[in-house]
Design a protein around this nucleic acid. Structure first.
Length: 567
RNA sequence: CGGGGCGUAGCGCAGUUUGGUAGCGCGUUCGGUUCGGGACCGAAAGGUCGCAGGUUCAAAUCCUGUCGCCCCGACCA
């Protein structure tokens, strides 16, 4: 490819709409252009990267026994109504009607379609396990698309579905996918970490997310750096109750604590550390008002509360809802509260002579002993893990990081196969429900994640395996026939040797070409200047690390190939 | 959906407070000089000031409505 013909409009300045680095660089380097919020055009450079990622994904999926197919994007409503997700998905689903008024949606995911596809034709245990996948655009009308390709409304996803006879089979399929995903992201040159995840609304029990470690990541993760390899999404990370020092229970007492609406204020007023108090938060849910209790210095993990209560919707209750429950913001507590589900963190139950709000303004109870003075409806681990908390496996203090979720693997069990009647006959002629798994990779998000993790002040630094081109040849002065000729020759030789090469044949000054090359992020830059012509050698610079090598012309092609292989 | 910010040339922005001929930088085109890290000189093209309505002799500017975009929050297979 010649730069003079390449459709890659680069920008000197960063468009104002882009906040995160991957978004900025993809716009500046001419990879993407926006069509609407969260919807992008992929220009030739981006498309080349995406195809490379897809290729790696295909190879790994095929190696793991997957078969590629292609399901429709436009999906009829009926199957979604069968599983109940037509309603559950809500506004996040792009919906449309055909000319007859029949309901359709643009596929946000394909559990329904794949399951209804195979249920009639897979009838025997002999046909299982079955691993089917596709790579396709997905549509989710996100409430808030953001960060360029990181959270779009239309995005490219690989989705694989496994169908097994039983849970043992699912475990095998799940392991294959887990390993395949590790291979994919390793081959893409990414620093990532599989973490335990909360399965969320899709249901099922086991789940891991593959997180590319990056500051711009939307997800918080914790990992054990010492004793073991535990790693989890903060939403999921378990915490064992912390034992409190033994203390003789004192008599419950109601105290005036004027103006102490925060834990810090109460603790200060009573002369106690925050970890001797209990924090109470109120949530409005589809099951009514929920009061969550954690130790004063801890934070509530809302996902865990949601799971403990078994509710679908959960948000902080407003003042009106709190007042309706007969309590007062800043002075809420479990003692005497009515019309609310009280959920206590397991650590709270270990506390003695603690402090809770008295459900009336400016008053707290002191010397509160959980179990004696109040009995929660639910006791569970509802605490949000923080850096330094003990690893649930080995007790070593955990580290915190941020991650971009580029893949997720789920054990669905029979959640969809049961609702959609995907059954088979076993050896004994008994009808059994298929056991399913679902496995996604965000292809376009992986591209963005790769940039988040690989960039510098000058632009993108592509991992060689997914770079749009592997090398760029730059004649320093295009007006010099000797340089032009030598550059043409290098370009032809490298191309013939199977390297994806760009020749920057533009009549631009060297600086412009170097800047564009760095911005786009070609792994290798082959520079042809006056010295190269005089001495019959070329200069090759690596984008990552910036080392410069000189090679005699005769050896240049082999040396470039060699260098690339080492990247 | 709640809160905040922004829509003026391809990109980055000024002009809006106080209404009066729409500007600057970059980029683009043409001519010339230059040529190893975003050159210089000269000429030129390019804008319904997001959209609609209103006030006014006169609206980018004031008022009302509306659409879009970005950020924070909520939410997120």
């Amino acid at each position: 490819m010649r730069t003079s013909k390449l459709y890659a409009p680069t920008l000197r300045e960063t468009p104002a709409e882009a906040e995160v680095i991957s978004h900025q660089l993809m716009l500046r380097a001419g990879f993407i252009r926006k069509a609407a919020g969260g919807i992008y055009n992929y220009l030739p450079l981006a498309w080349r990267v995406l195809k490379k990622i897809e290729r790696i994904v295909r190879e790994e999926m095929d190696a793991a026994g997957g078969q590629e197919l292609l399901l429709p994007i436009v999906l009829p409503a009926e199957m979604w109504q069968e599983t109940g997700r037509w309603d559950v998905y809500g506004d996040e689903m792009f919906r449309l009607k055909d000319r007859h008024g029949r309901d359709f949606c643009l596929g946000p995911t394909h559990e329904e379609m794949i399951t209804t596809l195979i249920r009639d034709e897979v009838r025997s245990y002999r046909q299982l396990p079955l691993l089917l996948y596709q790579i396709q655009n997905k549509f989710r009308d996100e409430r808030r698309p953001r960060f360029g390709l990181m959270r779009g409304r239309e995005f490219i996803m690989k989705d694989l579905y496994s169908f097994d006879r039983d849970e043992a089979g699912l475990d095998i399929s799940y392991k294959k996918m887990y390993d395949a995903y590790s291979n994919v992201f390793t081959r893409c040159g990414l620093t990532f970490r599989p973490v335990e995840a909360d399965p969320g609304a899709i249901g099922g029990k086991g789940s891991h997310e593959f997180m590319v470690i990056a500051e711009a990541g939307e997800a918080g993760i914790v990992y054990c750096d010492g004793g073991c390899d535990y790693a989890a999404n903060v939403e999921k990370a378990e915490l064992h109750p912390i034992a409190a020092p033994a203390a003789a229970p004192l008599a419950l007492e109601l105290k005036d604590t004027p103006g102490t609406k925060t834990i810090a204020a109460v603790a200060d007023f009573l002369g106690l550390p925050a970890d001797r108090t209990v924090k109470t938060l109120a949530y409005a849910t589809d099951k009514g008002l929920v009061i969550a209790l954690v130790r004063g210095d801890h934070e509530v993990n809302e996902i865990k509360v949601q799971n403990a209560v078994g509710c679908i919707a959960l948000e902080m209750a407003d003042e009106a809802a709190i007042a309706a429950a007969g309590t007062s913001p800043g002075f809420m507590g479990p003692i005497g509260i009515k019309n609310a589900i009280v959920v206590a963190d397991n650590t709270v139950m270990k506390m003695a002579n603690t402090v809770v709000g008295a459900n009336q303004g400016d008053r707290h109870y002191v010397n509160v002993n959980p179990g004696r003075d109040f009995t929660p409806d639910i006791v569970a681990d509802i605490r949000l893990i923080q850096e330094g908390d003990p690893c649930p496996r080995c007790g070593t203090p955990v580290k915190a990081a941020r991650g971009i979720e580029v893949g997720q693997v789920f054990k669905l069990y029979t959640k969809y196969s049961r609702k959609l009647n995907a059954t088979y006959l076993d050896e004994n002629g008994q009808e059994q429900v298929m056991v399913m798994g679902t496995y996604g990779i965000g292809i376009s998000r992986t591209m963005a994640a790769a940039i988040e993790q690989n960039n510098d002040a000058n632009g993108i630094i592509w991992p060689a395996a997914i770079a749009p081109f592997q090398a760029v040849v730059i004649p320093v002065n295009n007006a010099d026939p000797g340089q032009r000729e030598l550059a043409e020759r290098m370009y032809a030789d490298l191309t013939a040797a199977g390297l994806e090469t760009v020749l920057d044949d533009r009549d631009e000054r060297a600086g412009v070409k170097f800047k564009d090359a760095d911005l786009i992020g070609y792994p290798l830059k082959v520079t042809v200047g006056a010295k190269a012509v005089a001495e019959q050698r070329v200069e090759v610079k690596t984008r990552r690390g910036g080392e410069t090598h000189f090679f005699p012309l005769a050896e240049a092609t082999a040396a470039v190939k060699d260098l690339l292989a080492k990247l």
